[in-house]
Design a protein around this nucleic acid. Sequence first.
DNA 1: TTTAATATTTAGATTAGGCTAAAAATAAAT
DNA 2: ATTTATTTTTAGCCTAATCTAAATATTAAA
Lengths: 220, 220
Amino acid sequence: MELTVAEENYLKAIYHLSDGGKKSVSTNDIAAEINTKPASVSDMLRKLGEKEVIEYRKYYGLQITETGKRYALQTIRKHRLWEVFLVEKLNFAWDEVHEVAEQLEHIQSPLLIQRLDAYLNFPKFDPHGDPIPDEFGDVRSRPRVQLNEMDVDQTGQIVAVKDSSAAFLRYLDKVGAYIGARIKVLDKVEFDGSLEILVDQKKTLFMSKDVASNILVLQS
Amino acid sequence: MELTVAEENYLKAIYHLSDGGKKSVSTNDIAAEINTKPASVSDMLRKLGEKEVIEYRKYYGLQITETGKRYALQTIRKHRLWEVFLVEKLNFAWDEVHEVAEQLEHIQSPLLIQRLDAYLNFPKFDPHGDPIPDEFGDVRSRPRVQLNEMDVDQTGQIVAVKDSSAAFLRYLDKVGAYIGARIKVLDKVEFDGSLEILVDQKKTLFMSKDVASNILVLQS
DNA sequence: TTTAATATTTAGATTAGGCTAAAAATAAAT
DNA sequence: ATTTATTTTTAGCCTAATCTAAATATTAAA
């Protein structure tokens, strides 16, 4: 069955909002997410129900079906593969890629995606650190490590801090190591465990082992 | 002005059938070319006429306008660049690419096309041997000069780089000398050939002869 | 130069996606 | 347990792009 571009976008939004089918999603939430009106959403939900990618009982909410999940994950897979391509091959900044990937994700060609995947060396994560589902829709989630435990040349994304005191957050902000920042370990001093870090491919900074141990990184 | 996907396809067909605006094209021919009915073509021709990308007098045929040609050539350019990408990078056979390129050609992102062009090393022909129009819609390639060879007060637009390494592109990006930027040579140091450049009429920057020799400029 | 054949356009529907305004159902509050 | 507020759905309309069937214009032929 072929889904339209609009249907793919709705399914993707529903998948995200429901956290992969766990939580329930409201018509209003969907409308907000994809920048449309609740009335339009109602109408589309009816259609998606008829196509059996969601189970829909009006006024009572919806449940994404297994089929629906497959379609959503396929679209997410394409989106994230294209993001990797844009950043790694075309030198887009990691925050410039979304809009273009939103368009590219709707190109229909299984062969294209297979080849792109291979060309990019079967990446498991996109430039934002989000996992790329495989062609069967399986996602590999990644363990978080403390920044001080990473080795030289390893890369990742800052996803959390252990010490969330205002002072520490202010410090992170000041040096540009905000949550979401992409980092790479440039050097590690054996003596005291302090690190030299590349942030967002442009700024380098030094930090003590102490500071680094309070930063959690999603490795890529 | 934004054209819809259908409008882009009609313009492309008209451009091809008219051999670049030379021959006249019939409603029936267009219908055959894009696999639709003459009635639908009539309707679309009226719309394209209103948007002034063709000059249309009913029953008497049509003439593609200069604006129309620009749009058509832009779409053709995108199509052919994607074909090069599919063949050279993703190992598609030259006869497998058309259908996918038909979809990719409608992605809207000037930056994407600029970067793709650079990534592919500014190819002049697609895998079928058809010429790739440049970003100005010109098929005959105009002479490009290396930035270091320009004289003081001369102006132009950056159209290409010789060294397309990530490092160099990042550097250019950082200083604001992206592909497409309009530049003017403000000063030139005889001693070492380094240059002072005005970018987009606002930012000035200095660069070594070495860097300048890797930047290709279309003079104006 | 009328008539026949062909090409083109219009009229009227259809489908996908969206909108606003109003109605109906559910949830919250007195 | 009503009333009020909120959410969701329906009704009716709009645009883009298509279609079929009918009308009209142009071209070719007798």
